[in-house]
Structure formats: structure tokens, C-alpha cells
Write a protein that binds this DNA or RNA. Sequence first.
DNA 1: ATTTCCGGAGAACAGTTGTTAACTGCATGG
DNA 2: CCATGCAGTTAACAACTGTTCTCCGGAAAT
Lengths: 221, 221
Amino acid sequence: MSHTLGIRQAQKQKTRQALLDAALELLEGQSLSSLGLREVTRAVGVAPTAFYRHFRSTADLGVALVEEALGSLHPTIRTALSTTGDTEERIVRAVELIAGHVERHPAHVRFIARERYGGVRPVREAIGEQLARFAEEVAEALAKDPVSEGWSRDDLLMLAQLYVDQMIMTACGFLEAQEAGPEERERITRLAIRRLRLIGVGRQHWLDDGHGDNAESGTTS
Amino acid sequence: MSHTLGIRQAQKQKTRQALLDAALELLEGQSLSSLGLREVTRAVGVAPTAFYRHFRSTADLGVALVEEALGSLHPTIRTALSTTGDTEERIVRAVELIAGHVERHPAHVRFIARERYGGVRPVREAIGEQLARFAEEVAEALAKDPVSEGWSRDDLLMLAQLYVDQMIMTACGFLEAQEAGPEERERITRLAIRRLRLIGVGRQHWLDDGHGDNAESGTTS
DNA sequence: ATTTCCGGAGAACAGTTGTTAACTGCATGG
DNA sequence: CCATGCAGTTAACAACTGTTCTCCGGAAAT
């Protein structure tokens, strides 16, 4: 395969990336459904019609942004999952990783938070799809943990989704705390850690209280 | 106090409510930041300038919608909190109440979910404020429960926020499941119940694992 | 009965939007 | 070296936006 990409395609992807970046910046103060095509091209410095060479509509640009934003989140999640050590250490490490990610890609996090239930359906669905993928990945990692012995696949997925949602909400917290002082960030950190601790406690005693063999769920094949 | 309100003010509040209703309906397919003033007045059937008699801008209308939407949620929460009985029963009842509320006021729920991290700052802040109020109310109710003996005020608030966030996410789940079949709604119901169960288990064993006297938190006055 | 007040209508303003069409210049493949 | 392809441009379209000003009719206050 040719990897040099040619001068032509290189330029194309360059302006395409410029469009994505400009859109992401403009989206700090508004939602995707109010983002204008001309607004983006004006920020980049190209003619409005050039937009159509790359995207069919702003919604189309939106799903491209979803892939970019959640693509950057993916390695962070893998790192968090592969962390070894005490339960407490892993929790602290996970929260630190989230904080670092938000500080590094604030616009990406804001975009995901804003459009997860936003007004543009295809974007909403794209985000939901990716998050479900994350949850499955987390569930897979959880299954390898000895604590998860005796857990049904459904319960593992439930816990994984809980963790993913928790991660996103924590990220949102850091995002809001970003424009406040660093002491607010510290507060969010401690709060997130306590939340994860409580979920962890529930996880460790889940089977003790007889929640493992839920009577009405048909786990019997 | 004069409660007859006069013909004049009655008509004014009538068209004001019409504007709110029309806006809420239009917001099913877009975000507040893209909602046009003229769009709303056209849907109601009044002149665009009439809008200014009631709201300064669409953002202003947004915060009014926040009060309406979360005002309707308030009694539901109080009902859920005042439910008596077994822990399991209370969980099931709470989820049922949420499902009922979503079915009764889907547009309200969608609006809150969409604008909680949406593009209009005043609206975002108004929602955050109201949700914090809810959390305090929940914390107050939790404090009366014998299970909460020995819990610090901070931990109670943490748990309360966790419950509030859980409620909203469950509501969002029901909202998405609404346009799908009723079996999807059933799935969401079971998932939400299991989530609340797990949090409940964590709550009951919170003090066992020595999380109550967190060493670094200065609860000492 | 008469004056004041005010919710709403109407018209006009300058800017903006998405989309189409025909065009230009340049990298690419033959 | 020449012809094709294609990213990007220019111009123009009708439709839409928020906002201001002036005006009207009827309820309210005197």
C-alpha cells in the first residue's frame, strides 16, 4: 500500500482536520444543532462550498467528531483497565487518568457530554454505540478479576456500564471545575474516588446478599 | 390578596404558557441554542415581537422551562422518598415512579437531559442548581434511615448525588426506550433495579470496610 | 366617561443561512 | 507532455434570523 499519500490527498486531509478543529472550538459555546456550515468555513478561511468536499452536512461532521473524540479516549480506558495493584490504588489511578484526559482534551470531553443526549440523532446514536463498545471492553476486563467469580454475564455488563457512566460524569465534573480553582478539582477528585469506592464495596458483597442468582432473569440457556 | 388575576393578566399568562409549550415541542428535534425566536412565535401564531413581552431571549425562555420541567419532577421525588417498606420494594417503587414520570412528561425529561450539559450557560447553571437542591433533599431523607448511622455528612451527600444522577440516567434510558418496543422498557427497568441494588449493597457495607472515617478528610470541626 | 396603560400587530432593517451552478488552477496518471 | 480529475473559488439564489420603531385596540384606573 502507498503510504506517502501524495501531495493532493495530504492537503485534503489537512483542511478536513482544520474544519474539524474549528468546529470543535466553535462548539465550546453552542450545540451542534446550531452550528452553521458557513460559520465553520469562515473560521478556517475557506469558501463555504469547500465544506461539501469533506462532509455532507454538519451532522456528518458531528459523527466524525465523535470518532475523533472517543478515539482519543480509548487508549486512556485501556490504560486504566490494565493498571495492576490494590483496589484502592486502581481507583485513584483511574480518577487521575480521567483528570489528565480532561485537561488534555477538554473540547473533546465537552463535545461528548453535550451531544450524548443532544439534538442531532445520528451523533447521539454514534456516541451511544461507542460507549456500549467501551462497556463491553470494561466487562471483559472485569471478568478476568477473581472478584467476579460467579457473576452472570448480564451483571458484569451492568457493572461495566455503571463504571463507564461514572467515568463520563466524573469527566464532566472535571470539565466544570476547570474554569474554577484547583481546589474545586481536588474536591471533584475526592468525590469521584468515594463514589468508586462505594460501588466497589457493593461489588465485593454482591453475591453475599443473594443477588447473583436473580430468579426472574433467564440465564438458563 | 386578589386571586382573580384580571382578564388582562390571564391572557398574558395564557400566551406565555403557549410559548413555553410550543418551544418544548420544537425542542424535541433540536437543542435550545438553535431554537429561534421567530420559530416559536410562528408555532403559537403570534407576531415575533410579542415574544419580547414575555422573555428577553430564548435563553431566558430556557430557564423558565427548567423551572417548569424540574418543578414537575419535584413531587415525584418526594413521593419516592416517602415510600416505606423493604429496601427492595423501595427500589422497585422508585424505578416505577421514574418510568411513570417519563411517560407522563417525556418532553420535560428530554429537555433536562439535553440541556444539562448543553450550549446555553444560564440554562446549564439553572439545572445544576436545581439538581443540587434535589440531592440535598435526598441526603436529608437518607439521614433519617437507620442504615445511615455513623455516616459523615459528606458521604451522605455523595450517596445522594449518586442516587440523583442514577435517577436521571434511568430517565434517559426510558426516554430512549420509549420509541422502541415495551420489551426494551422492561430491560431498562431490570437494569436500573440491579444498579440501585448494587449501590444499596455498597451502602450497607460502607462502614464495615472502614470507609466512614476517611483519614484525610477534615470532618473535625 | 375619559384617560392611561400595555399586550400584541405590522413593517422594515441589515445580516445571516444552506445550496446550486459554473469556474479555475494544479497534482496526478497515462 | 498532455489530458483528466478534483479541491477549492466566486457569484448568486431565496429564505430565514434578531431587533427596532410605530401603531392599534381594549382592559384598567381615575
